[in-house]
């Protein structure tokens, strides 16, 4: 190595344990975290959270949340389970048909029964009928 240019630039030495994760609006800390809460919440955590949970900065970007944040520009919450305007038919159609680059979900993944439970969870705070 003598006489050679040699630079070591420590840009972001993230030493895990020292990085305090920003408090999230949602209890789940990452996409593969243990599932918690009632059944509807667990279905949401398992199938929706990895793309629709709270997104960055610092943590991983969630495609669904990023896309919705920019579509709604603050008019509606970007995180799906903070919404109060979701209707059962919108949730059902989106889950079974997909949209843009979101692929649909099959009954072997989210059964009809689980979809009903998920819909109940996502519409629990619905402000108007």
């Amino acid at each position: 190595m003598k006489g050679r240019a040699r630079y070591v630039v420590a840009v972001s030495a993230l030493v895990a344990g020292l990085t305090g994760g920003a408090a999230l609006a949602n209890a789940q800390s990452h996409s593969a975290a243990p599932l918690a809460g009632d059944q509807g919440q667990q279905i949401y955590q398992k199938w929706c959270w990895p793309c629709h949970g709270p997104s960055g900065p610092g943590g991983s970007r969630k495609a669904g949340t990023e896309a919705l944040r920019n579509s709604y520009k603050g008019k509606l919450p970007a995180v799906l389970d903070e919404r109060t305007d979701l209707t059962p038919s919108l949730v059902r159609t989106t889950v079974r048909n997909g949209t843009y680059f979101m692929a649909p979900f099959r009954k072997t993944e989210i059964s009809d029964g689980d979809l009903d439970t998920l819909i109940a969870y996502l519409t629990r705070r619905r402000s108007s009928p």
Binding site: Y7, A10, L14, A16, G20, G21, S29, H30, G58, S60
Partner: peptide, 20 residues
């Protein structure tokens, strides 16, 4: 040379959350 990150296991849930 650039050192981007050093992680030590086991990782706490909080630490995991902050990792892109």
């Amino acid at each position: 040379f650039q050192e981007d990150a050093l992680y030590r296991f086991p990782l706490s849930p909080d630490a995991i959350d902050g990792i892109p």
